[in-house]
Amino acid sequence: MSIFIRNYKPGPLATLYKANIWRLNSTTAESSVKKDEDEEEFRVLDILKKRDKQQKRIVRRTDIQPDRADRMTENQNWGNVWPGPKTFHPSSVPLPLRQGYVPAGQAPPAKKANAELMKIPNFLHLTPPVIKSQCESLKQFCTEWPTLLNSEEAIEKHYPVEVITSDYCHASPSIRNPLARVVTLRIKLSTLDLDKHARDKFIRLVGDRYDSSTDLVTITADRCPMRAQNLDYVNYLLTACYHEAWNVEEWEKDKTEDDMEYYNWDNNASKKSVVNWYLAKRNEQRDLTEDEYRSYDISVIPNAEGYKSAVSSLMNDGESEETVNNYGKAVRKLLGLPEKMVV
């Protein structure tokens, strides 16, 4: 199209006329005309291609502001300069820091362009004055500690149940941690309202969750996916065990001496023989039933209490030099024999 116009270039008038005609027919006509006019100037043969050479790019450096640290006053509020956790930035920290390992005699790399300083987590946002002011502002949300709970014993007395859970903080998009579901409940067995039978049954029910040395029952639950469910579950377990301990089943009456978990002197042959011996000593002839033997008050027998504890400890704590000696002494006292002579 442009070639066609160039061929008919007798005068500006004709060009305009033609252009107008073409403009009716095509949208590209206008640009062709302009190009045409530019080319009217004298063309120079450009052998070295100087015109095509790209203009050299001028590197314009913007003014670099001076360091913020240089303009800082000594009495400024540092908390405003560094309000939160942030990667180290040398121009805002007015400290002559250096970090890096160098051979002896050289200075470590300075704070500028030092990647090591950017790597380590800093606590520039937790300066003592900032912590103080934050604590001051948090005080309004705190309540006073109850005055009666002034010691460990008081806390233990009023809050015997201890629930232990773990919270996990970790760098991840999710705040969930499967281990946070584990709930441990701890309670001193003596704080529960249990009688002799119920206590024995409770210990049998909880099994190895009871530690006799510390008197603590520890119940742990991790079977449910949520902590609240596990908490409910441990509470349920404690409640269920407690009430079950108080139940006396029909078959529990069949418990014989062989089933006893500890040696009870009152139920055993040792008491029977002591009572018989005592009655024979006083020339009383009485036929006692089993229950009467059991409920016989041994405080009337001189030194029988010592004998009872000696036999019980020998049977319960096992045979050792100490228990055997104690037993010997108790027997001598009970029968009124002289003390053992140390040769």
Binding site: I164, S166, D167, A171, P178, L179, V182, T184
Partner: peptide, 27 residues
């Protein structure tokens, strides 16, 4: 690691190891 607030009682440390043993995903 930056702030690992672990409110873990001494008695539960044994437990976590048991849990870790039981479930291979957590080990």
């Amino acid at each position: 690691m930056t702030s690992s607030l672990l409110k873990l009682a001494s008695s539960t440390t044994g437990l976590t190891s048991i849990v870790a043993k039981c479930s291979p995903v957590l080990v």
